[in-house]
Design a protein around this nucleic acid. Structure first.
Lengths: 162, 162
DNA sequence: TTAAATAGGGATATCTTGTATCCTTAATAG
DNA sequence: CTATTAAGGATACAAGATATCCCTATTTAA
């Protein structure tokens, strides 16, 4: 059970977009080159973000993506769910219902006790991701990346932003 | 990102094995019939439990599986990891290292900030599963299943236990 | 002692999902 | 008008999940 690599890509792209000045955009091409990723396939991940309403897009030259909301209002969970879907990691096929000792329909009253525990774990996972935003990530990054590299990156991005 | 159905199977099988009297065993055949599962494939899941040391096995007629430890010492996490593996759900491919503005080897000092957050969520998930044992599950089940069905199931199992 | 039942595991087949590329269309800026 | 862009459909390929079959060694029951 491993998350798609698109999740990683989407998170890093949003991290970059978080640092983008108001009103400017970054294209798929720029984001792909920056991260060394296949442009066409990365595009699919960005489309997922777009469909989820996390990013705003414009067409044409100097078009591309920017965050649709302030970084403090975009959580890890938002991004992960946009790409990976919001389904649970544990799917209950209700195999307890096959128990030959149970009358038909006996298991219709509510979810299986096994599933409830598994879903509780899923919730704990979600809650952690819900609690960290792109603003938090930016804070962390600016603390652990030396100023010269940080500003160099910033310049690189701005040069390619529309 | 969905857990294998074998995880569900393994959990339910361990739940049944938890109720087995000392020294008795349940075969793959019995467990498969009880849950309505494909015998051969369920066998692979049970082999995973065996390799993880969660169950003890014997050969021959009246052979099969029993828990290797008391139910209170077998957690959901033990079972999930036995079947699904203990790897993280988020794999960091360190794409930040492709950033053209970073000198070679700059990212060797430690894991990416994005990965750290994702792994923190994984830990929350694990911690939840670590905190629930087969004994807890048995307690829950005995409370929500009517006594007659509970004892009927118990009889069914014993009839097929070696 | 023999026969039946069992776990273990290798080989194989199939189906689903993730990964990746290519191409067309519509919109937009210069 | 032209170059550039996002969106999305079609397709191909790889990897993993699901499932079955078969053989072997071991152990119990008769």
């Amino acid at each position: 059970m491993i998350l798609k690599s698109q999740v990683e890509w989407a998170l890093h792209c949003c991290a970059i977009l978080s640092g983008l000045p108001e009103g400017r955009y970054l294209s798929t091409k720029a984001l792909a080159e920056f991260h060394g990723l296949p442009k066409e396939y990365l595009s699919k991940a960005l489309q997922s973000l777009s469909q989820a309403g996390l990013v705003h897009t414009t067409l044409g030259p100097s078009g591309g993506y920017r965050l649709a909301r302030p970084p403090a209002e975009v959580s890890f969970l938002d991004i992960v769910e946009a790409v990976e879907g919001s389904g649970r990691t544990f799917v209950c096929n209700n195999i307890r219902a096959n128990n030959p000792c149970r009358p038909k329909g006996f298991c219709d009253t509510g979810p299986c006790a096994v599933a409830r525990v598994m879903w509780q774990a899923d919730e704990a996972w979600r809650n952690t991701l819900r609690g960290v935003t792109m603003a938090d990530l930016g804070q962390t990054l600016s603390q652990e990346i030396p100023p010269d590299i940080w500003s160099g990156t910033f310049a690189w991005v701005l040069k390619r932003a529309g």
